[in-house]
Design a protein around this nucleic acid. Structure first.
Length: 460
RNA sequence: GGCGCGGUGGCAGAGUGGCUAUGCAGCGGAUUGCAAAUCCGUGUACGCCGGUUCGACUCCGGCCCGUGCCUCCA
């Protein structure tokens, strides 16, 4: 079994992954706040951690992958006020759509998908611990985490206290003891969602939910915590502060999660795709225009820590590659059965999820399959290719279905034109034959003349 | 300003101290009535300037350029 190596943000280096308990791997990734459609940048995180989870399942007997849904947040409140829809309606709708859209990208649902609103009690308990331990204080209905009480603060994102102050341009709320202090609990007005707490009716700050849910569902410490690179600071830094301090581990940043894995951004013409820049592309729209596998492959075409520039050309390139792979599978003919994933591909993925390398190996496997003569070899290579595809989350369609091959009898008009063309070719009336071919092409039907007769398939 | 990341052939994108990445596109060929599909062949790329070295795209230093976090953000 190959050794998995992962880049750990906490140590800023690639390390051998050593499970806390090799019988049970526990992974947590920060999921979406549900008040809107997910864009392709959000999807990158889902696809990357989906792949990591499948890889871990290949290597270890049991994996629990948890990824949350944030369903209480000021942005959701704002969306409710804007649209006039109740908060529950909004969060229900967009979490459902999120799961559907990710499903279209071949993302398996996480084993656990906890919701913030179902863990308010856990959050309150955690906050109480922090107050008791002297790491948090109440001020004007808020409860704040006192950053100076945690000298190790900043260890994940690599910034010192001095950096913080130098860079602090944000207005500091007057009730904060220290400018870096962040909110654990805040008061709610009558028209805002709220829960009773020792500090009055209110709602949680953003960071506390992940600390609470990861602990409840996975136990501490757990193996891998992940998310997008922009969550390193402040979100993940604050999670570490809360969780380590609540458990008396003020000097051990790894007491919460051992490995921190962050995926890079999706960019558009070199700039980060973000809601504030307004350059977002919604997954919901993309899946109407392109096959999910092509979108997934595009997301995996760059290494997960590198920026990935999103463009229609990039999707079409992935689509072309898949067309070729499916075409090779189609020509090979044999239907696959379960086989082990080839070592070259497993090795590539075990090297910090080197998907571009894995794709190169996949292509070389496909090339070998295309060249293979013997039925036994063909079958073996087909099975390997499909096993690798399943791990990566592609090649899940029947080749003829993907390529759009049609058979006789499903469209009378096409059958008639094909028959007429056949006759024309027999009569050496190639002008008419080519005319029919163009006519069919306009209808989105491409013709392939083979020694076994004419085949057709739907294009686009 | 502080802290990071990156600059690879037409495009996308890995990687390595000396040996073909891979894909997409292009070009040439086989095949085809012509095509399509498929197959074969084809491209001495590594931001700039120094240094280390027998040898650097790969290590070190400087510079230029791009980009990210520092504020909600995957």
């Amino acid at each position: 079994m190959p050794e998995l190596r992962l880049f750990n943000t906490l140590t800023r280096g690639k390390e051998a992954f050593e499970p806390l308990d090799s019988d049970h791997i526990r992974v947590y990734a920060c999921g979406p706040t549900v008040y809107n459609y997910a864009h392709i940048g959000n999807a990158r995180m889902a696809v990357v951690f989906d792949l990591l989870a499948s890889l871990l399942r290949k290597l270890y007997p049991k994996v629990t992958y948890a990824s949350n849904i944030t369903d209480v947040d000021d942005k959701i409140i704002a969306a409710a006020q804007e649209t006039g829809e109740p908060i529950d309606t909004i969060t229900e709708k967009y979490s459902r759509i999120y799961n559907e859209d990710m499903g279209a990208l071949g993302v398996e649902p996480p084993d656990i998908q906890p919701r913030a609103t179902q863990h308010i009690g856990d959050m309150i308990a955690l906050i109480e611990k922090l107050v008791e331990a002297g790491h948090a204080y109440e001020a004007e209905g808020h409860v704040l985490f006192n950053v100076p009480s945690f000298p190790a603060y900043g260890g994940l994102s690599g910034r010192s206290r001095d950096d913080q102050i130098a860079g602090a341009r944000v207005e500091v709320a007057p009730y904060k003891k220290d400018p870096a202090d962040f909110v654990l609990w805040k008061p709610s007005t009558e028209d805002q969602p709220g829960w009773d707490s020792p500090w009055g009716r209110g709602r949680p700050g953003w960071h506390i939910e992940c600390s609470a849910m990861a602990e409840v569902h996975l136990g501490l410490p757990f193996d891998i915590h992940g998310g997008g690179a922009d969550l390193k600071f402040p979100h993940h830094e604050n999670e570490i502060a809360q969780s380590c301090c609540a458990h008396g581990a003020e000097d051990d940043l790894a007491a919460f999660a051992k490995f921190w894995v962050h995926n890079g951004f999706v960019t558009v013409q070199g700039e980060k795709m973000s809601k504030s820049l307004g350059n977002i592309t919604l997954v919901h729209d993309l899946i109407d225009q392109f096959p999910g596998e092509a979108l997934r492959l595009t997301l995996l075409s760059a290494h997960y820590r590198q920026p990935l520039d999103w463009s229609v050309e990039a999707i079409e390139q992935s689509k072309s590659m898949l067309d070729r792979l499916y075409s090779i599978l189609h020509n090979a003919g044999e239907v696959g059965e379960d086989t082990e994933v080839p070592d070259e591909i497993l090795d590539a993925l075990c090297d910090d999820l080197n998907t571009p390398k894995a794709m190169a190996e996949l292509n070389s496997l496909a090339k070998a399959l295309a060249e293979a003569e013997s039925p036994i070899v063909k079958k073996e290579l087909t099975n390997k290719l499909l096993a690798a595809g399943r791990l990566i989350g592609i090649l899940n369609h029947a080749p003829s279905e993907w390529l759009g091959y049609g058979s006789g009898g499903e469209d009378l008009e096409i059958d008639a034109l094909l028959a007429e063309r056949k006759q024309a070719r027999e009569d050496k009336d190639f002008a008419r034959s080519d005319e029919i071919r163009d006519e069919l092409l306009e209808k989105g039907i491409a013709i392939e003349d083979t020694p076994d007769g004419t085949k057709w398939r739907r294009t686009g």
